[in-house]
Design a protein around this nucleic acid. Structure first.
Lengths: 248, 248
DNA sequence: CGTCGGCTTGATTGTGCTCAACCCGGGTGG
DNA sequence: CCACCCGGGTTGAGCACAATCAAGCCGACG
């Protein structure tokens, strides 16, 4: 479990990298002061489980850095990822005692955590947090529904292209640019994690990545570094409206 | 478009069948009075589209009776249903101008509607509505994630069994009973709608239903009336934890 | 140097899709 | 009243895409 890597730090909300996108993005300075006294940072190793499905939930919070995966496992071992938690995304749900899904760190992950009960009280008394959380939840619901189209109707090739396109766009927006023309980024997911997310086997993932590489739509440096000569070509392979109606 | 069937009615919230489950379930009498002045009922024919994806949203509201489907279509015609709206479910999302998905009546549907802008104002000033909406949205998000497991990892047979099990349970809960032993109900969906929901073709849906019938797990009276001799047997075919960990 | 985990590639299989014919019941018009 | 049509559903034959089973590659690390 590598507890030695777990850290407890406290930093200023003003200088927080996710300040403008997280649950607290609409908070007034005095509200932030309250949060500041409640929060604790914790960092998890890649592969560590933050929350087990079925366990009672101890804390809620925001992903500050790294990537975590929300997933579900059937008795016979079939697994499906049902959400990717990226920086600024919210972990846990107020008002529910038991966690419905596993939360696993895909990379090293740092979370800004709050005890569940105090945060729930805050939610009632602080509309700026409640409203933002509602907004974020509605966005996540839309993403989940987009993902349902991918899982139900897209081909393996389209699934891979869609995932790469989404990660590319997200990565671009993180450095405040628009994904277009030549783009490159690091995959935060292993082939197996991609398979779990896309509803495929890892062999199929590997084959489709090879195919896209063979056709020059993507280039690889090592296993994880992806280089896209022309983002538009990649979008053509996603099966989506090429003129950007996609939500995520 | 059968406009002649469209009705405008006004009824008392106290006697509303979805009073205890809808967005308004936590409202105080005075808050209900406000809603009462704002609401309008409208009934749609089966097959009618309540909202087109991409159009600007005119209203929000609750499904009072009937079943509506939320769905998405790709340019080449592939379609995926991404949500079923049943009585008490909320239609539309505050804070978004453009509808991301089509909303189509699967059966005749009656909706209790509010103009978007006034309702959004109410949302800010009335925590009992905002809180309830957050809770409902979180529940829907969980359901969507459950559905992702089905779409990504279940076999055609498991998909059909899961859908039937869910409808059976829902139907039972509507008449305040638990699904167990012998159960029967009407399918609110055509074979095609089932296929759209399950990420299958209608031929596969038909074949799997025939297979379940052949094996005595279900019985049919006509095309739509389903009779389940033993609900536990059906659950065995869903691929889920048989001891009821399922959410929906 | 050997091992191990993550990944790639190959051969084969099988589930669900496609294309196509047909059935059935209800509604319509001659 | 019957013939016809039409939409929804069923069934069949063949195929294709992704899963499965299996071997081997590559780089990191002890």
């Amino acid at each position: 479990m590598n507890l030695h890597t777990t850290q407890l730090v406290r930093t200023d909300c003003d200088s927080c990298p996710i300040r403008h996108r997280a649950v607290c993005s609409r908070c007034e300075p005095d509200e932030l002061d309250v949060l500041e006294t409640m929060k604790t940072y914790k960092t998890y190793d890649a592969g560590q489980t933050l929350v087990w499905a079925g366990d009672s939930v101890q804390f809620l919070g925001s992903v500050v850095s790294g990537v975590a995966a929300l997933s579900q496992t059937m008795e016979d071992g079939r697994r499906q990822m049902v959400g990717l938690l990226l920086p600024s995304d919210f972990v846990g749900r107020p008002g529910r005692e038991i966690a419905p899904f596993d939360v696993v760190a895909a990379t090293e992950v740092t979370v800004c955590r709050f005890q569940k009960a105090p945060f729930e009280k805050l939610l009632v008394s602080t509309p700026s947090i409640a409203t933002r959380l509602l907004e974020m939840t509605l966005d996540e619901l839309d993403s989940a529904r987009e993902w349902m189209l991918l899982l139900g109707r897209k081909t393996a090739r389209e699934k891979i292209a869609s995932l790469l396109a989404i990660i590319a766009r997200r990565d671009a927006s993180l450095r405040l640019r628009k994904a277009a023309g030549r783009v490159q980024f690091d995959l935060p997911l292993s082939r197996e994690a991609m398979a779990d997310y896309l509803g495929l086997t890892l062999e199929t993932v590997s084959r489709q990545i090879s195919a896209l590489k063979r056709e020059g739509i993507i280039e690889l440096q090592g296993k994880r570094r992806i280089n896209i000569p022309d983002y538009a070509n990649l979008l053509n392979e996603t099966g989506d409206d090429t003129d950007g109606g996609m939500i995520v």
